[in-house]
Design a protein around this nucleic acid. Structure first.
Lengths: 123, 123
DNA sequence: CAAATATATTGACAATCGTCGATATATGTG
DNA sequence: CACATATATCGACGATTGTCAATATATTTG
């Protein structure tokens, strides 16, 4: 089906077989998988808003404060907090009945750098 | 239920009512919605790989080249290409039987800037 | 026109995600 | 202990997403 010598893309003409091009991936499959997983965390308005709020009120915001500020109910807030926590982007300090959340600035900076680097590569 | 004067966060004690904090959002709901929508486009390994390939082979890659390089079948490749096209991040030039795709560098740069700005804000 | 090829589209299906009511757990109050 | 409050977890449900076989469309060749 394929010729033995590969067809250069620039020589491809009408009727020539295609798919003989050997495209290398600069991003390795594993890296890509991991990166898209990380980006997914940011791809939700509520999670962006949570990060926005926490970034300016470190350690001073409890779950019900967030619930009051966001368009979702408490279990949903807790759900998104858990995702952000599992991703290492936020953390919390329990104090009495409350859980005061804060951004993990180091982790967020690291993610930011990785995203920026990748996007620069792609653009 | 709530006192008339709001409780300062730093004065909150055990048993005090919470949720009286008036948290302002730096990111407006509409912006946040739009931004998360844009980020979602990047949150898939196949789409990241497509951008990776196209960025180094502008106008030289057809769909079946991509199919050969990616772990998904042709309809799925076309599907992701359509999403990227609808988002304005790529474009294509049809030539005979082939559709040669390329990255819209201006659009990607614009998205990159917006993402970077937001992440800086959050960190 | 008939056959071959490349791509897009459709439709079905499974998997994942987002949401919320209900409930569990933990802490503090009287 | 009984009660109230804050948060986490569970379970169900609908919405969205990802995938692919099948098919449609378009182009080119003979």
């Amino acid at each position: 089906m394929h010729e033995e010598t590969k067809l250069k893309i620039e020589d491809r003409r009408r009727g020539d077989r295609c798919c003989d091009t050997d495209l290398k991936l600069r991003l390795k499959p594993d890296e890509t998988e991991q990166l898209s997983e990380d980006i997914k965390i940011l791809a939700h308005p509520v999670r962006l808003q949570i990060l926005d709020i926490l970034s300016r009120n470190a350690g001073q915001v409890c779950v019900c404060d967030l619930e009051a500020a966001l368009p979702v109910k408490q279990p949903t807030v807790s759900h998104h907090l858990k995702l952000l926590r599992d991703a290492g982007l936020i953390d919390c300090a329990c104090q009495g009945l409350w859980a005061f959340y804060f951004v993990n600035r180091a982790a967020l900076a690291k993610l930011r750098a990785r995203v920026a680097e990748t996007m620069k590569l792609l653009g």
